[in-house]
Design a protein around this nucleic acid. Structure first.
Lengths: 208, 208
DNA sequence: GTTCCAACTGAACCTGCGGTACAGTTAAGT
DNA sequence: ACTTAACTGTACCGCAGGTTCAGTTGGAAC
């Protein structure tokens, strides 16, 4: 049988390949600075090939953000799912999940490559209201998830100090985002994981 | 006497005006997406005027980052200076400083406009090693400052749990950066201040 | 074995951007 | 009166950027 030719025709994988290449560049240089020429050169296709997959450059931005949000949801599903199998106590589940999350980002080959939500937020004047709404709802969904877990924790273990659970839910996202900025600015691939673990310590302190 | 004409000649203020306009645009769209044409139009000067002040576009980037780091240092000096006048206890000084910091960012007219360190970190492939080093050292200086305060706090009030003070110092920066991302992504100008205050709660808990 | 379609290629187009060159102008300082 | 800083005005350049579209290819279905 004919083995899978990787170059001649890629049978549907091209779009994903374009997006992988584009995402890496966008996270390192920004959206406007990432040229279609550079993407198609790296993907070994022509410019026309790019425009077969994306109607224009903004369609690429939207597709990247949508895919990124789905991938992140999948990671959280995985991490909280695995945590829920290891304990029945809401606090333990949350603490285990944060530990697993720290491990996931620590084990990424070159550290976390960067968050598309953050880049989009820092370049939002480039995009239309739809993309901005997508970004807003993506972060809101993360916060809602964390907030759900935190409510379960708080009922089982009343916090030792009054804290706003909405703010605390946002802080999980915020510490991740801040950790990535630290990691990139300091060129220290362990910074994000350490920030997550420190937040974990604080959450452990709070509910006990 | 001739009153100060604000338009005809700005007596040295032009360079600052260029930088103000450029910074706002860079924080909203990214560096590459901010064109010189657009800057000079907003600053009501000509292109030649721009190149009189900056040898090229990268010189603008460097100048923006240098100025931003100085401004941030000034804010921290102010906040910790005022806090030190209100207490002698290291913990109280730190807690007051964080409160004041939250107030400062809360009272900004449209919320915090964004951190140049974060944009630079997320677009570092656009810049040379010098700018990247500037960014790294800027964040390192913030961390060193916070770390100094934290050491004083820890000797006066041993922490109730073992934590790495380097990570905690980084977290002050990280929570600010994460708070800005949240603020931009959620379009909620209060997010950053609330994140700082929540970190303050955690620090209060830790050293007691 | 023609027809059909998805997945491209090739070539051209045009705008806008960063940057240059350089001569002239204005007002403040000395 | 002379000098200097801080610009303006105009013209130009090369090229890289996004976009368009007519045409090609190769596998699958009938």
């Amino acid at each position: 049988m004919a083995e899978e030719s990787e170059v001649i025709r890629s049978r549907g994988g091209t779009r994903e390949r374009i997006m992988d290449i584009a995402q890496e560049a966008v996270l390192a240089k920004g959206f406007e600075a990432t040229s279609i020429d550079e993407i198609v050169a790296a993907a070994r296709i022509t410019k026309s090939g790019f425009f077969y997959h994306f109607s224009d450059k903004t369609a690429l931005a939207r597709a990247l953000l949508e895919r990124y949000l789905e991938q992140e949801e999948a990671i959280f599903d995985d991490v909280f799912g695995r945590a829920a199998e290891l304990s029945d106590d809401p606090l333990q589940i949350l603490l285990i999940a944060l530990k697993l999350l720290a491990e996931v980002v620590e084990n990424l080959p070159n550290g976390h490559p960067g968050c598309l939500v953050a880049t989009t937020a820092y370049q939002d004047r480039l995009f239309d209201a739809e993309v901005r709404a997508l970004n807003r709802e993506g972060v809101a969904a993360w916060s809602a998830r964390f907030r759900g877990h935190l409510e379960a924790v708080a009922t089982a273990h009343p916090p030792t100090r009054p804290v706003n659970l909405d703010d605390l839910a946002d802080m999980v996202t915020g510490v991740c985002e801040g950790g990535i900025v630290l990691q990139k600015a300091l060129d220290d691939r362990t910074a994000m994981a350490r920030q997550i673990l420190l937040l974990r310590t604080f959450i452990g302190m709070l509910f006990r």
